[in-house]
Amino acid sequence: MATTKPRILPLTKRGLNFEMLMWLFTRLTALAMYGLILIAIIGALIMGARTQMNLADVLRWGFMPNSSHVQSTEVPDLAPWSTPFWKITASVLLLIAVAHGVHGLVVIADDYIVSSRGRNIARIISIIMVIAFSAMGLYILWTS
């Protein structure tokens, strides 16, 4: 009679390379972005968005909870909308969105760029893009 033995490959023997870690990262960050957007929308409703903002403004805030996004609404006081909590939430959303999006571009580029030199160039450009977009975004979020 055959016996069933557990077959779990050790960490170093399962092909878990940077490529597959980024595959997992992309899935987890997609879920995280949904969560952060939901937190921002619920937060906006708690802070009075139901009567002071229209749907488009609430969604704009939800996708990037930066206080400059509520300046043109009927919100009387911007202070609750520009606390460190919201700045940190927006910063986390920015960082994971940039990494998620740029990695998506690299994955699509890899479909069409097959030489190792071309792929290396695409990766260098993507790293520069991540650093530049993140730095610009963080500068705007923390100085506006």
């Binding site: 077959r7 490959l9 023997k13 399962r14 092909g15 390379n17 490529e19 597959m20 890899d110």
Partner: peptide, 24 residues
């Protein structure tokens, strides 16, 4: 396949850039 002993070798092959990551 529980009888096969090269799962690790194959996993490393398909985890290359032209393997699993190309499936969208």
């Amino acid at each position: 396949d529980s009888r096969d002993e090269a799962a690790s070798e194959r996993m490393h092959i398909i985890a290359e850039t032209d393997g699993l990551a190309r499936c969208h």
